[in-house]
Nucleic acid binder design. Structure first.
Lengths: 354, 354
DNA sequence: GCTTCCGATGTAAACGGTTTCATACTTAGC
DNA sequence: GCTAAGTATGAAACCGTTTACATCGGAAGC
C-alpha cells in the first residue's frame, strides 16, 4: 500500500510537504497542494493511524473497559459513550467481559498507546492496580467505582437513595414485611441498593435484620428462584424489592406461576427501569437510572480531563435515581399527573408510564 | 513514561534484549531475563501499542462500523462481536451512528492502521466506495449487505423467508386482509421483509398490491402512529405485520388505547424477537433472529479471512429467521410442544414463551 | 591448538508518519 | 542595489518498537 514516501516521490516533493498538505498547514502552495492531493488519490494513499499516533501521541480514541457486556444496562452505557464520543470525534476501543484482575491487566496493557483516556467500570479490588498504572499515562474516568481512586474522575448513580426511596414508598403504602432479592456479592451497585433498603426500614422504625434477604445475581433466573424460595416460607412478605429489573421479571413470572396476584397479594418493585418494565404485567414500579446518560457524562468528564492534562482534578459526579411508580407496587393512583422529587434527600417519585 | 530504552539502559542491556524478554524469544539468558523484568516492573514499563503495531503490522483489533447504535438489535450484534473477539484475543474499535457516506469515509480513514479487519454494516450505496478502499488493506466482513462486494465475506439473516413464514402463518389462520408497517426506506432488512410479505400474499393467491402498506422507521412511535392511521380506515385489516418488534410495541399500544383487543379484533406479528416480546400483553408472535449470533459469526469469518490473507475467498453465510408463535397472532394453541421448521423453504415455526 | 558451531547479545535498519530547523527564492522597503 | 521580511520547501531527527544480521565467547570436535 502507498505510503507518504510514495506520494512524495510521485509528486516530486518531500514527505514533509505531503504531510503538510494532509494536515492543513496552510503554508503550502495551493498548486503544489492540489498536485499532491491528486497523486494521493491516484495512489489511494491513506495515512497510517498507528504511525500518526506514534509521533503525535494522540489517538482520538477512548478506551472502554466493562466487567461484562450483559444486559440492557451495559448496552445503554456503551450507547451513551459512543454517541458522546462521536460528538467529540473520538472512536472507542472496547474491551469487556473481564472476570478477574489478571484479564483487566492484560486488556489495559493492550490498550496502552492506542487510547487517549480510559473509561472503566472497575469490577473488583484486583483491578485497582491496573487503574493506577493506566492513570499514570492517560486520564481515567471510573463508572460506579467501589473505591474512589486519587486523580480519577468518576460518575455514579445514587443507588443508595434510589433504593431507599423505593422501599420508603412501599412502607408508605402500608407494607411492613418487605423482602429483598439482592444482586451478586461484591457488586457495588448491589451493595448500595441493599444499604438503601436497610436504611429505609430503619428510618421507619422497622428492624432491618428481621427482613428476608434472598441472594440473587441480577439475572432473571435468580429472580424466579427467589420467588419460589419466598413462597415456600410463611408468612409471605407483602412486598418484595428486587435489586434490578431483570430479577423482578423472573420474580413476577414465579408469582404468576404460583397463582399469586401482583400487587394484590404481593407488591413488587425493581431497579433500573429497563425498556420492558413499562410493558410487564402489571407494569413494573422501579427506580429509573439513565444508563445512556452515565456514558455520556463519563465522556464529558474525560474530555475535560484530556484538555486539562494530568493536573486535572478528580471530579466526582452523581446521577439521580428516580422512583417510577407504575402498578406492580399497588399504589395505583392514576390521573394525578407527574410527581417528582430529586433522589438526593429521601427519594424521587415519578408516576406514569414513562 | 519509561520506554524500552530506559529499561535497556537501567538493566545494562540493549533494547533488542528487552524486546526479546517481552516477546518470549527464549534465546535469552534466564538470569538476564529476570533482571530485565525486575527493572521493567520498577520503572513501570509497558510497551507502547502504537509502536508495536507499526512494526509488526498487527493490532489485535477489529474495527466495527454500524449505521447507528440504536435499539436492542444493534446492542446484541455488538455483544456477539465483543464476546467472540475476546475469545480470539482481539479488541474492538467501535464507530457507529454514521448517517452518510462521508462520515463512513472519515471513520474508515481514522481506523486505518489501527485494525486488522473491519466488520461493517453498510448503510447505503455511498459507503460502498469506502468498503472497497478498506478492503484493499484489510479483510472486510459485511453484515446484512445490500450489495455483495467482491472479495468480502458476509453474514445475513433470512429476512425474506422469515417474513414470508410469518405472513403465511397469518394466512393459515384465515386472515385475508393483512396490513404491513414497513421499516425505513432504503434499509435492506426492511425491504427484504416487505418482499417476504408480498410473496406470502402472492403464494396464497392474494393480491399484494391490494394490501395496506404503512410506512414506518423501526421506532416505537412510528408503530403507534401506524396503528392510528390503520384504525382511521375502513375496513380495518384483521391482521398487521410490523417490520420489527419496536413498531409492534407501538402498534399494540395504539390498539389498546383505541379499545381494540389483540388478537381477537386484530392479530399482530412482529420481527426480531426482542427480549420484551415474550412479556408484552399479549405476548408477541414474532420472527426470531439471533443478533448476537450474527456478530459471533462475523468474527469467525473475520478470523478465517485474517488467517488466509488477502487471497481468502468471499464466503456468504445466511442465518435463519424463525417464527415464534405466541398469543398476539391468535393461534393460541398451547400444549402442543415445540414445532419447528427451518426458514429455508417456506418458514420456520416455534411455539412457546421462548 | 585450530576450526566449527552455538547460544547470548548488540547494532542498526526498518515501520510511516510529524515537526524543528535550515535554506532558497521572492518581494518589499528605503 | 542592498537588506529585511516572508513564503514555500527540503533535510533530518524523532516517536517506540521489532527483527535481520553481525559479533563474540566458549564448548565441542579432531
Amino acid at each position: 500500500m502507498a505510503t507518504i514516501r510514495d506520494v512524495a516521490r510521485a509528486a516530486g516533493v518531500s514527505i514533509a510537504t505531503v504531510s503538510r498538505v494532509f494536515n492543513d498547514h496552510t503554508l503550502v502552495n495551493p498548486e503544489t497542494a492540489s498536485r499532491v492531493l491528486e497523486i494521493a488519490t491516484k495512489l489511494d494513499y491513506w495515512p497510517n493511524g498507528a504511525a500518526q499516533s506514534l509521533t503525535t501521541r494522540r489517538t482520538q480514541t477512548l478506551g472502554v473497559m466493562l466487567p461484562e457486556l450483559f444486559g440492557e444496562f451495559y448496552s445503554e452505557v456503551i450507547r451513551g459513550i459512543d454517541r458522546q464520543s462521536r460528538a467529540h470525534d473520538y472512536q472507542i476501543l472496547l474491551s469487556s467481559s473481564h472476570s478477574n484482575g489478571e484479564e483487566v491487566l492484560i486488556a489495559g496493557r493492550a490498550m496502552l498507546g492506542r487510547i487517549d483516556g480510559l473509561i472503566m467500570m472497575a469490577p473488583d479490588e484486583a483491578s485497582i492496580e491496573t487503574v493506577e498504572r493506566v492513570r499514570r499515562r492517560v486520564p481515567v474516568v471510573l463508572l460506579n467505582p467501589r473505591i474512589e481512586v486519587e486523580g480519577c474522575c468518576s460518575v455514579a448513580f445514587e443507588n443508595f437513595s434510589g433504593a431507599r426511596a423505593a422501599v420508603a414508598h412501599l412502607i408508605g403504602l402500608g407494607h411492613r414485611d418487605i423482602a429483598m432479592i439482592t444482586g451478586p456479592q461484591g457488586n457495588v451497585d448491589a451493595e448500595e441498593r441493599l444499604r438503601g433498603f436497610r436504611r429505609a426500614l430503619a428510618d421507619a422504625g422497622l428492624d432491618p435484620e428481621a427482613a428476608a434477604i434472598i441472594p440473587g445475581d441480577f439475572r432473571e433466573a435468580a429472580g424466579y428462584e427467589a420467588g419460589v424460595t419466598l413462597l415456600a416460607r410463611r408468612p409471605w412478605p407483602t412486598a418484595v424489592f428486587a435489586a434490578n429489573d431483570g430479577m423482578a421479571v423472573g420474580l413476577l413470572a414465579a408469582l404468576a406461576a404460583a397463582g399469586k396476584r401482583v400487587p394484590r397479594d404481593i407488591a413488587v418493585v425493581g431497579f433500573d427501569d429497563i425498556a420492558m418494565a413499562a410493558y410487564l404485567n402489571p407494569p413494573l414500579t422501579t427506580v429509573s437510572v439513565d444508563a445512556c446518560g452515565l456514558g455520556q457524562r463519563a465522556v464529558d468528564l474525560m474530555m475535560g480531563a484530556i484538555e486539562s492534562g494530568p493536573t486535572g482534578g478528580s471530579l466526582r459526579q452523581q446521577l439521580p435515581a428516580v422512583l417510577v411508580v407504575r402498578q406492580s407496587c399497588g399504589s395505583d393512583i392514576t390521573g394525578t399527573g407527574m410527581l417528582e422529587q430529586t433522589a438526593g434527600d429521601g427519594g424521587a417519585v415519578r408516576r406514569g408510564r414513562k
